[in-house]
């Protein structure tokens, strides 16, 4: 007999607690008709194995390409090997080929699963159905080691609390980040971490939170968290995209095709830089002369 209900009455953290304490194996199907969204979580003896978002399903190979851990060529080779040895998991083949280390592979998978679950904590409503015994599909991204849910609950609840504060300043991740015209005095002498600088250097008044996250390989949550700090410091502000600035689909949605995701360009391939217009340079020269 499946367990059914609504997240409005029985929140995700309540259900994870139940799964943990009940040592349950099976799938938790979440459906949110209001946003036409869904998620499937798979558990093994109270621990989380996999999370699938059907609208933006991402296979392991696509995930690793998106994170820059494997190249499309390496993936193609591993998939070829897998076809010849049907029973072996792709991750195992990539490790055996020396393309990625076992720990690195687990880290990537675990981070992907955890970030997806944290997004689900923001769902205030949605139907759920838990069916015992259900297992993920073989090509779904699965953790090599089932993940304890206690930490997920604690971090998820903390993020929901934090996100509610962030959302007051950054309503969604399609918001465009730009420098303020006149930084406030408190913006002086700020020390930044490497990740903060990476984001800071990407701010151009055209890129959204999602686009910045995509470019530097951080999660939209991590970027919005840091941008929130910049806003608080009076360095930047966010604006809604205008007609010319297209909002971008969530990161995972861009990796639908193997090889479609931009990977880090090697130093051997210089980027084409379009020269500026003479009128622009002339304006700069005139201003600098007048300083």
């Amino acid at each position: 007999m499946p367990l059914v209900g609504n997240l409005r009455d029985f929140a995700l953290h309540d259900f994870l607690y139940l799964v943990d304490r009940g040592y349950k194996t099976g799938s938790l199907m979440l459906n949110r008709p209001s946003t036409d969204d869904a998620a499937h979580l798979y558990f093994d003896k109270g621990k989380l194995l996999s999370v699938v978002r059907p609208q933006r399903r991402e296979r392991l190979g696509e995930l690793l390409i998106r994170l820059g851990k494997v190249s499309p060529q390496q993936l193609a080779q591993a998939l070829q090997t897998q076809q010849m040895n049907n029973a072996r998991p792709l991750g195992q083949i990539l490790v055996e080929h020396g393309v990625i280390g076992q720990r690195d592979l687990q880290f990537c998978i675990q981070q992907q699963i955890e970030e997806t679950v944290y997004e689900l904590f923001a769902w205030r409503d949605g139907e759920f159905k838990f069916q015992a015994g259900q297992k993920p599909a073989p090509d779904d991204v699965q953790s090599l080691v089932p993940l304890p849910v206690e930490n997920l609950i604690m971090e998820g609840v903390r993020r929901v609390d934090e996100m509610s504060r962030i959302k007051e300043r950054i309503p969604n991740n399609d918001m465009i980040v730009r420098f303020v015209d006149r930084p406030q005095e408190k913006a002086a002498n700020i020390n930044m971490t490497a990740d903060e600088w990476r984001i800071f250097a990407r701010i151009n008044g055209r890129s959204s939170i999602n686009e910045i996250a995509d470019k530097i390989g951080l999660t939209p949550y991590a970027v919005s968290h840091i941008v929130f700090g910049f806003i608080t410091a009076g360095l930047v502000e966010v604006t809604r995209p205008t007609g010319g600035q297209s909002s971008k689909a969530p990161v995972a949605a861009q990796a639908q095709r193997v090889g479609s995701t931009p990977t880090r360009r090697s130093a051997a391939e210089p980027a084409y830089v379009e020269p500026p217009k003479k009128s622009l340079v002339a304006r700069l020269i005139n201003r600098i002369r007048g300083l």
Binding site: E274, P275, P276, K277, K278, S279, L280, V281, A282, L284, I285, I288, R289, L291
Partner: peptide, 19 residues
């Protein structure tokens, strides 16, 4: 520093496109 920036801008102007 102003002079350095100006020299760079003159270089940039060399490769700038019309417009």
């Amino acid at each position: 520093c102003k002079n350095v920036l100006l020299e760079l801008l003159y270089e940039i102007m060399e490769t700038a496109k019309e417009g």
